[in-house]
């Protein structure tokens, strides 16, 4: 039973890495969001695999929450936003071109591996290289998400980058340990909230202030015309 799990995990890990690479490379925002949803799905599957192996209910719940929030709600919401904003592609790249960014990611992968190998080796519970690899991939994806944030101009793309980072953290935690359920749930709620705020703000940055408020609150215009009675000297 152990061998297929290990192989399956390895395959999933490579796929997650591949999705991260795609997110770094892609310009089309819609496919970016789709790739992200796929990546989240992969992480959820991985959680399921671990659940099958260890039988911890937390992992099952995590997988469910993941599928609901990250595979379905967030991508859906972002897709809506993208349609409303009517921005299809994020063309500009800052600092790093996609190719360079990938090369940098490779180096990061190497560094993370070098830094984490001795650390993981210190922990008694993990004797297989799988854990080291998993931890490395998780942390590397966090870094790759960060690369997405600073190489892209559009706030939506940045949000995708941020979400990728989150996936990396979850991946990392999946491999090392399982956190208490309450904490896990809270974290996810938290992150969703931040993502929502950021996405909402993404409106603002690409539209004028009046449009922004009009879009957010259709009644604001009427109230704005009302002036306070107080006069200042």
């Amino acid at each position: 039973m152990i061998l297929p799990t290990e192989q399956l995990t390895q395959i999933l890990m490579v796929m997650v890495l591949a999705t991260a690479a795609i997110i770094i490379m892609k310009r089309d925002i819609r496919s970016l969001i789709k790739t992200y949803a796929f990546q989240s799905l992969l992480v959820a599957v991985m959680a399921l695999v671990f659940y099958i192996e260890t039988g911890a209910v937390t992992l099952l719940l995590l997988a469910v929450v993941f599928i609901i929030s990250k595979v379905w709600i967030i991508p859906h919401f972002m897709g809506k936003v993208q349609q409303k904003l009517n921005i299809k592609r994020d063309i500009k790249f800052h600092f790093l071109s996609p190719i360079t960014a990938l090369i940098v990611s490779l180096f990061i992968l190497l560094f993370v591996y070098l830094a984490f190998t001795p650390l993981i080796a210190e922990l008694n519970r993990f004797n297989s290289t799988l854990f080291t690899l998993g931890a490395t991939v998780g942390v590397s994806i966090v870094f790759m998400g960060m690369i997405v944030i600073f190489t892209r101009k559009q706030t939506l793309t940045n949000v995708v980058g941020y979400l990728t980072m989150e996936n990396g953290v979850v991946l990392f935690s999946l491999f090392l340990t399982e956190l208490p359920m309450l904490i896990e749930i809270l974290i996810i709620i938290d992150l969703i909230m931040l993502t929502l705020i950021a996405t909402v703000l993404a409106f603002g940055i690409d539209s004028t202030i009046e449009e922004f408020h009009a879009r957010l609150n259709p009644f604001s215009r009427e109230q704005q015309t009302k002036k306070p009675e107080e006069t200042t000297q």
Binding site: G138, V142, T155, Y162, V169, S173, L176, A198
Partner: peptide, 22 residues
Amino acid sequence: LKYIFITSTCMLFAFIGLILIF
């Protein structure tokens, strides 16, 4: 946005540290 992106991305790294401690 600057606030959210800079602090939140960095805070994710903090979480990696927390997992390590855990």
